[in-house]
Design a binder for these strands. Structure first.
Lengths: 107, 107
DNA sequence: CGCTAGGTTCTCATTTTTGTGAACTCGATT
DNA sequence: AATCGAGTTCACAAAAATGAGAACCTAGCG
């Protein structure tokens, strides 16, 4: 049971690579970060619950390949309905917040 | 410019009506609450930015009827991609969190 | 080695969300 | 009263997410 899963870390690296310098890429970067974050959170939640992808899939009524897709850091199709289903299956709830843009350089 | 828009309030009422007593409805209720909350947040954000539905629509590249739909408390189709587009247009960012279930009766 | 469990990838049909325009309401302005 | 601006509702086509099964990889185990 050893697959890709560098789920976490590498974040700092990615950050440096993107942000340092160019600035038009920020939006794009934000996008990718959010997607990767969600993927990681799902993975962590599933792990904490001690479930396999198959088991989680069964709980929310889908297939393991669908769960795998959700845990892929590059997946761009996350939807609220899916997050809610996962949260519900794991006895959590989803909270959405609009935060002020993380201004990196205080400028 | 006077439409439905009882955007906010009535929450307590709704809460009482649903939760008090029955418990199987909690999940369903949570759903509705989240949807209504998102609708309200979008509305508030737009207002704070001093934009009309038409203007916001143009900023994110859609039509005013689509924005109207998003601000409808009964709309069930909220997606992350849409929230991200709105956030971006209003110089905000979306944050998703999985919270422990709000246990009402501590039991 | 052969098997199995857990995970990943791909493809494709189905379902859901999104885009859009038209028609309509209501209040304000002229 | 006629017009206008802002919002709402509806229906339908286009686009995106989901469900699902098959094939695959790889560690660990008997």
């Amino acid at each position: 049971m050893a697959q890709k899963q560098f789920h976490s870390k590498a974040g700092q690296f990615l950050y440096n690579r993107y942000i340092a310098g160019d600035s038009r890429r920020e939006a794009q970067y934000e996008e990718e970060v959010i997607n990767a974050e969600i993927a990681r959170k799902i993975y962590q939640l599933r792990m904490k619950a001690g479930l396999t992808q198959q088991e989680l899939a069964e709980r929310i009524g889908t297939s393991k390949s669908a769960i795998c897709r959700l845990e892929d850091a590059d997946y761009e199709g996350h939807s609220l309905s899916m997050l809610k289903r996962i949260a519900a299956a794991l006895d959590k709830r989803v909270e959405i917040r609009f935060m002020p843009t993380k201004r990196l350089r205080t400028a």
